[in-house]
Design a binder for these strands. Sequence first.
DNA 1: AATGAATGAGAATTCATTCAT
DNA 2: TATGAATGAATTCTCATTCAT
Lengths: 214, 214, 214, 214
Amino acid sequence: MSNCSFIITIMSHKKFSRNKQEKIDLIYKTFFTLILKRGYHKTSTNHVAKSAKISIGTIYKYFPKGKEDIIRKYFEESMKNFFERIDLISINNENIREFLNHFILELYKNHLENKGYIIAFRSAIQSDKNLLKSQKEEVFTFFKDMAQKLRKTNESFKQVPEDKLVEMFIIIYNLINAILYHHLSIMEFFDTNEKLVNFLSNLVIFCLNYLRKN
Amino acid sequence: MSNCSFIITIMSHKKFSRNKQEKIDLIYKTFFTLILKRGYHKTSTNHVAKSAKISIGTIYKYFPKGKEDIIRKYFEESMKNFFERIDLISINNENIREFLNHFILELYKNHLENKGYIIAFRSAIQSDKNLLKSQKEEVFTFFKDMAQKLRKTNESFKQVPEDKLVEMFIIIYNLINAILYHHLSIMEFFDTNEKLVNFLSNLVIFCLNYLRKN
Amino acid sequence: MSNCSFIITIMSHKKFSRNKQEKIDLIYKTFFTLILKRGYHKTSTNHVAKSAKISIGTIYKYFPKGKEDIIRKYFEESMKNFFERIDLISINNENIREFLNHFILELYKNHLENKGYIIAFRSAIQSDKNLLKSQKEEVFTFFKDMAQKLRKTNESFKQVPEDKLVEMFIIIYNLINAILYHHLSIMEFFDTNEKLVNFLSNLVIFCLNYLRKN
Amino acid sequence: MSNCSFIITIMSHKKFSRNKQEKIDLIYKTFFTLILKRGYHKTSTNHVAKSAKISIGTIYKYFPKGKEDIIRKYFEESMKNFFERIDLISINNENIREFLNHFILELYKNHLENKGYIIAFRSAIQSDKNLLKSQKEEVFTFFKDMAQKLRKTNESFKQVPEDKLVEMFIIIYNLINAILYHHLSIMEFFDTNEKLVNFLSNLVIFCLNYLRKN
DNA sequence: AATGAATGAGAATTCATTCAT
DNA sequence: TATGAATGAATTCTCATTCAT
């Protein structure tokens, strides 16, 4: 009996500790799911609360500015997570093509899994320009890092100045995002997602060549 | 007396006719300008009325469903106008490259002049899927027409089946729109608009080759 | 029949015209009455709407910032009205005592009729310091005017510099208000209102003498 | 083992005893400071907890009815303390003027140090009429005591019936409070606080004479 | 005893839409 | 036709209060 209560105590304590992050994740999930169904501006904090079966007060505890905060905080977490998943360390001269495909696939999967968030983000930047600024900075930092690594291990990239390389990568990153967003969230204009990914893979090669010269 | 009233009727009818379109245009202009400033969901019909110095009743007279109607009606007018401006008749074997550049430039100018509307349209389709369907149909009709014309005058296109050609054009059209939107309304990722247009021009060539094979 | 409709049209037009000010007055009346019953911070705009049987939207049409605006606009109207009711023109050497009593009585009646407003005003200045500033300015303007008039017609006041006179009047005005507020809105510490007014009348004489010397 | 626990109990009890009053004082201080900054109705118990760096649960432990209780309990403590500081025993025929000045100065200092509380108290009585009643009783008890003492030692006061004397003192007490509150918490209408205190001192003399006759 | 997560009623405010004039 | 006053449902957000840990 006492053993049992001991276990319960530990478990419930653990459960409680987890609850905080669980609740935050539940809010994220519910919010972005509702956005997919009803659109950003028809999804209210009250809808989220009701749908997630938590109180509206809980949402405002974790996200004091409401919808804006949910998006901003998810942005901060997800950007970090996404870029951390990309393994820049093992890039070398021989696996660049493979790396690019992997990168495109990660971006693709990220878009697919975060459609609600991406719609929300694009709605939110209309009235919160700082959000866009933050994103720009994160993207710049990542590609600066990537450019430096590639110029160390790869002869072909060494010939391009670092700044130019960063600029190229940012353009390509934006192109991929533009196309993924349009295809996944506006209108599917490729037959299959495989065709889309394959196209993007070739587009990147085309862009690397084109941007280098222009 | 009756003469008098007759004259007044004619005059006021004329005046009204002019006023009607003027008022509609004023509503369009004000609505899309406000959207650029404050975002779609923070722009209300009441704001538009106040800003345009007309009454809210007038807006609902011309657009009984409010914002949704403004967007839908502008969509209908502007799509028609846009495609009518594209001269498909004089395309021939020699000026295709030139035609494509012209087409891209028209799309580019269209985006630039209609940023507010484009933001509104993308917000509206979140809760009105018919809007997207209508657009798809308009686009399909236009490119079917274009494919037929090109296959008549141009040997190279004759080798591609009509359906395939239409599909290719629609993909390219979507790609251009995706990139224009991202660059003009989300984040400027090309240094200058000239670079953007130039890139798109080359991208189209790349795509025509790529899509033909895949 | 047509006569009848004619009359109705005129009446209802009048009624409509009046409605605007009538509605504003209804909001004032309802708001200040509720404050007397439940206190300032327990009186919400929604209560006012329900109690006055008008919609909440109507309140925000006339008072876009809600409670704050109701108080500020009533303040502006009532200050002007109050000071306009005081007839400074006919003050002369002989009727000063009488004038002072009249002034005290007006202030007293004003407090009595506006208890709800006065409570609201004192609550509102806690978070809106501009309200107090505006009041100070109105009061200063009025007493500057009064001082100038008195120094023209009255030998005894002529011996006091204008600035000093204004300062004295403002102190006396504040003293009367402080006492009226405490007695009427906090705790009745005089047996009867007559005793209060009589006391104030003598207090003013005392103050005029005291302040002149100090 | 049992010894050990015994020691711990004593120690923690001591520690707790000190902590308890410290915590209550911290709540008082934080609450009244916040009220001065933001006004009564914009100061919530949650704000107090956050600002004082204690938990909201602790506030509700000591003050189960929240803000209302904080004010009521502070009122009970501070009224008692204030009147206890006034030394009625040593009043005699010769030092009455001095005593009155001392009393005014104590009231003045009390207002100055308790501005936040006084604002809170005046807000709270709007919805808690008992608070006012309690205050009236405390005041009455004190001045009844004072009247009795003065009539024993002072010939001049002996001529006034006890009830009349109590009534006079209560009026004067309210007048001073009304003026102090208006000057210190609403609008400074005396140049300096010294002028205010000096004025009040003379006002009391005037009132004693005036009220005796009326 | 102390904590602070959670609750949900309710306050402030907005906005699409109607309708009398 | 044109106006704009009026409506009230819906949204954002706050806050007193409870209760599990």
